[in-house]
Amino acid sequence: MPILDWINGEYIPHLLDGFLNPQKRVSLLYLSIAAALAIIWSVYVSRGSVRKGFLIARDKLFSQRVWFSHSARGDYKLLLANHALLLLIAPLLLSKLTATTALFFFFIDIFPSGAAVLSSTSPLLVAITYTIFLFLLDDFSRFATHFALHRVPALWAFHKIHHSAETLSPLTVYRTHPLEAVIFSFRAIVVQSSAISIFVFLFGSSVDLVSIYGVNAILFLFNVTGSNLRHSHIPIGYGRLAEHFLISPAQHQIHHSLDPNHYDRNFGAALAIWDWIAGSLCKSRTDMVLKFGLTDRENLQSQKLLHFYFSPFRELFDRGRNDPFYRNRNHRNLTKNAV
């Protein structure tokens, strides 16, 4: 049967690839390292008591309360359904190569004498520059997209699916509305096509990426230093100084916090400097006790897949009927004292 062939030949291999490929954030390699870091952190906060540390780690990271909660089951439904949906719509999305080639020839047309103007530069220098440029552009674009998802009411209607998670596990990263996935896909196309076309245009040939296990070296460092713990109940902070530059797991948990003081804070993915510049940075504290999810007013009533998929559209429809010109732009309580 074609559907079984598709499940065996495409769906399952792609799904497994997400957990085996080091280019994916939830690969087993990174998950294992995150678990080890969580245990080390737990032992550390237990003042060196290994037993107590393991108990904390078990409670915060490995407990049924985290992995089999109502919210976690919602994560899994979205992961499995989105995976199928995105596989099916992927051929309809703009090809990265088409976009890259078009941009490259656009540069040639508008700066004809600039083609390969830096072709004599040392390949190592070019590779390092490209790797850093790509990382910065990618991280900034994630910040900007995330910022827009919170600040544009129509986009928040979709992004709030992600924020409806009440327990956080590394798989919450996949708690995404499919429309957001299309936005993220477009973001990746813009970033990768721009970076590659600019570098090939300026340097006249393909450029190497400084990589580890085939992954951008900087991104690899981000992933092995516990990026998966950002969606967890392990509040590892980096200290007040470092948190101006890097988003710690605790800072991202602040981003998910129900505390109105934490609304629309810490949009960054790896770097905190964008939030610092935009004034949305919030550093972590060791005495924080956080609850996650949405306020009662915004709360999604159900963890059913259809509800996840269609409630944003219904919200937009209702809002369009009641407030067609979006006069009330305070879709969420943006200020500390609003609630």
Partner: peptide, 20 residues
């Protein structure tokens, strides 16, 4: 122009559904 295709392959497909 093949270099651009190779560079894209190196970046991998990532996952569009990963949320921050």
């Amino acid at each position: 122009l093949a270099g651009m295709s190779d560079m894209l392959k190196k970046l991998g497909s990532g996952s569009a559904a990963e949320n921050d």
